[in-house]
C-alpha cells in the first residue's frame, strides 16, 4: 500500500497528465452530447454578444462604405427584378420558377455578421440572429450574390454559420446552362475558389457557366447562385472543375437566413426509413 501511494507521489505529474488528458478525451467524445452542446451554445452566445459590441464601433466608423454596399445591393436587386419580370414573360421560365417553389422561401431573416474566424483552429461566421428571430440549425445562409453557408449552432440571439469555404461543407450544385450536376467542396487554398466534384468527363460543362444549388440538398434552397466555372480539366473518370465563388467572404457584412423548406418524406427516405418502418 505504501509502495502504491509512493508511486503516485513520485509520479504526480504523470498522474495529473493522465487525469487531465482523460477529461479532455471524455469531452471530445461527448462533443455531440446535449449538455456539452448547450454549454457550447451558451458560450457562443456570450462570445457573439461581446463581438457584436466590438463590431458596432467599427460599424459606425465604416458607415460610408456601408452606404456604398447598400447602394450596390439595391442596384443588384433592381437588376434581379428586371430580369425576373423579363423571365415571367416567357412561359418556360415561369414554369421553372414555379417548380423551384420560390414562393415557399419567404420570409427571409436579415442578420449582421458580428465576428468571423478564418484560421487553422476555427473557420466560421457569427451572426446577430438566433432562436428569438426564428433561426434554427441547418438553415441556408445567403446574400443577394449567392450561397454563404449553413447554420450549425444557434443560441437565443446569435447563430454560428459554417461557410462553404470549410473543409466539411458539401452541397449539391447544378449548372444553369448544361444542367451538369456535381458536389461543391472546398479543399483549402484561396477563399474565392472551390471545386465541384463528381462531374463525369462526358458532361458538356464549360468555363463561364453559372453553378446553382439543386433541390436535392437537405438544407440549401434550390436555384441559389454558388459561383461561376473557371476551368474544367478532364481526368480518368471525372473532370476537375474549379469555380469562382459568387460571394466575397472577405467583405461579408450582412447575410440573409432562409427558413428551412424541408420535405419530411424526403428526409425520412434519406435517413433510410421506409413508410412501413415509420408507421410502426
Amino acid at each position: 500500500m505504501k509502495k502504491f501511494f509512493g508511486f503516485f507521489f513520485r509520479n504526480n505529474s504523470l498522474l495529473l497528465l493522465a487525469v487531465l488528458s482523460a477529461i479532455s478525451l471524455i469531452f471530445m467524445k461527448m462533443e455531440e452530447a446535449d449538455v456539452i452542446r448547450r454549454i457550447s451554445t451558451t458560450g457562443t452566445g456570450f462570445r457573439s454578444a461581446i463581438a457584436d459590441k466590438i463590431a458596432s464601433y467599427g460599424y459606425l466608423i465604416n458607415l460610408k462604405s456601408e452606404n456604398d454596399r447598400l447602394l450596390e445591393t439595391n442596384l443588384s436587386l433592381v437588376a434581379k427584378i428586371l430580369s425576373a419580370e423579363d423571365s415571367l414573360r416567357n412561359e418556360a421560365d415561369r414554369l421553372r420558377i414555379i417548380s423551384s417553389k420560390a414562393e415557399g422561401l419567404k420570409p427571409f431573416i436579415i442578420a449582421r455578421v458580428v465576428d468571423r474566424q478564418f484560421s487553422n483552429r476555427e473557420n466560421m461566421l457569427l451572426i446577430d440572429g438566433g432562436r428569438s428571430r426564428g433561426i434554427g440549425t441547418d438553415m441556408t445562409v445567403m446574400t443577394p450574390r449567392g450561397l454563404v453557408g449553413r447554420v450549425v449552432a444557434v443560441s437565443e440571439h446569435y447563430a454560428k454559420v459554417m461557410p462553404l469555404i470549410h473543409a466539411d461543407f458539401k452541397a449539391s450544385v447544378v449548372s444553369s446552362e448544361s444542367g451538369t450536376m456535381g458536389v461543391l467542396a472546398w479543399n483549402g487554398g484561396r477563399e474565392d475558389m472551390a471545386t465541384v466534384d463528381h462531374v463525369p468527363i462526358s458532361s458538356s460543362l464549360k468555363p463561364g457557366e453559372k453553378m446553382l444549388t439543386t433541390n436535392f440538398s437537405t438544407f440549401a434552397v434550390p436555384g441559389l447562385p454558388v459561383g461561376q466555372v473557371v476551368s474544367v480539366t478532364q481526368g480518368t473518370l471525372f473532370s476537375t472543375v474549379i469555380i469562382r465563388l459568387a460571394v466575397d467572404f472577405s467583405s461579408l457584412n450582412h447575410v440573409v437566413v432562409v427558413p428551412l423548406n424541408r420535405d419530411p418524406e424526403k428526409i425520412r427516405l434519406l435517413e433510410g426509413k421506409t413508410e412501413s418502418e415509420t408507421d410502426r
Binding site: 505529474s13 495529473l16 497528465l17 487531465l20 488528458s21 477529461i23 479532455s24 478525451l25 471524455i26 469531452f27 471530445m28 467524445k29 461527448m30 462533443e31 456539452i36 454549454i39 457550447s40 458560450g43 457562443t44 456570450f46 462570445r47 474566424q117 483552429r121 476555427e122 449552432a153 454560428k160
Partner: peptide
Amino acid sequence: MLTGFLGGMLTGLLSGQIGLLMLAGT
C-alpha cells in the same frame, strides 16, 4: 499543465471544441 488545461477549457467554452482545446493546453 493545469493552467493550459483551464485555458483550453475557457477558450473552448467561448469558441467550441472544448475537449480538443483542453488536450492541446495540457
